[in-house]
Amino acid sequence: GTVHVGDKTYHFPTPDAAKKFAQEIAKKLNLQVTVKNGTWQVH
Rank of each mutant, 00 (worst) to 15 (best):
V5K: 01
T9V: 14
L29H: 13
Q32T: 14
K36T: 14
T39E: 15
L31N: 03
K19L: 11
Q32L: 11
T39Q: 14
G6S: 05
T34G: 04
Q23D: 11
P15A: 14
N30H: 10
Q32E: 11
K8W: 09
K28N: 07
V3D: 00
G6H: 10
Y10E: 00
K20A: 14
V33A: 10
Q41D: 09
W40S: 03
A18V: 01
T34I: 08
A22F: 01
A26R: 02
T2W: 11
T34L: 06
K20W: 10
T9I: 14
T39Y: 10
W40E: 02
P15D: 13
K28Y: 08
G6M: 12
L31D: 02
P15F: 14
E24Y: 15
H43P: 04
V5L: 10
N30M: 06
K28S: 09
F21A: 04
H43Q: 12
V3W: 00
D7H: 12
V3M: 02
L31Q: 07
K19H: 10
D7P: 09
E24R: 11
A22G: 02
K28W: 06
Q32N: 10
N37Q: 07
Q32G: 07
A26D: 01
T39L: 09
T34E: 07
V42A: 03
L31K: 05
G38T: 07
D16R: 07
T2A: 08
K8L: 11
G38R: 05
L31E: 03
V3I: 02
T14P: 00
T39W: 06
V5D: 03
V3E: 01
V3R: 00
N30R: 03
V5T: 03
A22R: 00
T2L: 09
K19E: 15
G1F: 15
V42S: 03
T2E: 08
H11V: 09
A26I: 02
G38M: 05
I25S: 04
T39V: 15
K28I: 10
K27W: 08
I25Q: 06
H43C: 06
A26N: 02
T2F: 08
P15R: 14
G6E: 06
Q41W: 15
K20G: 06
A17G: 08
T14D: 10
K20M: 11
V33E: 02
G1A: 12
K36M: 14
T14W: 04
H4K: 14
Q32K: 12
N30P: 01
Q23L: 15
K27V: 10
N30I: 03
G38Q: 07
H43L: 12
V3P: 01
H4A: 08
K28M: 11
H4M: 15
I25V: 11
K28E: 12
P15N: 13
K36G: 07
Q23W: 14
G38D: 13
V5R: 01
A22Q: 00
T14L: 04
K20S: 11
A17H: 08
V35N: 14
W40K: 01
K27Y: 09
K36L: 14
H4Y: 11
D16P: 03
A22W: 01
V35P: 04
P13R: 11
T14M: 04
T34S: 12
Q32V: 14
E24A: 14
V5F: 14
V42G: 03
A17E: 14
L29P: 02
G38F: 07
P15C: 07
T14V: 04
T34D: 05
L29T: 05
F21T: 01
W40Y: 14
V33C: 06
T9M: 09
T14K: 04
V42Q: 02
W40T: 03
A26P: 00
E24L: 11
D7V: 09
Y10Q: 01
E24D: 13
K8E: 08
H43F: 13
A18R: 00
V42D: 02
K19R: 13
G6K: 06
T9K: 08
D16W: 07
V42F: 04
L29W: 12
T2D: 06
G38V: 04
H43D: 09
W40L: 06
Q32R: 11
T9S: 08
V35K: 07
H43V: 13
V3F: 01
T2N: 05
L29I: 03
V35R: 07
T14Y: 05
T9L: 10
V42P: 03
K36D: 13
V5N: 03
Y10N: 01
K28R: 13
H4S: 09
H11F: 13
T9Y: 10
V42K: 01
V42E: 03
D7W: 10
Q23G: 06
T34N: 05
K36N: 14
K8Q: 11
A26S: 07
H11G: 04
P13I: 07
G1K: 10
K27H: 12
A18L: 01
N37V: 03
K27N: 12
A22M: 02
F21V: 03
G6Q: 07
P13F: 07
F21L: 02
N30V: 04
H4Q: 14
K36I: 15
V42C: 02
Q41M: 14
L29C: 03
V35E: 15
K28F: 08
A26V: 03
Q41F: 15
A18I: 02
A26K: 02
F12W: 03
P15K: 14
A26H: 02
L29V: 03
P13Q: 11
N37K: 05
E24C: 05
K8S: 07
K8V: 11
K20N: 12
V33K: 01
F21Q: 01
N30A: 06
A18S: 03
W40A: 03
Y10A: 01
L31W: 14
K27I: 11
I25N: 02
D16L: 10
T34Y: 09
A17Y: 05
H43I: 13
I25Y: 07
V42M: 04
V42T: 04
D16M: 10
V3S: 01
L29F: 14
L31H: 05
V33Q: 02
V33F: 09
P15W: 15
K36C: 06
T9C: 05
V35I: 12
G1I: 07
T2Y: 09
P13A: 13
Q23I: 15
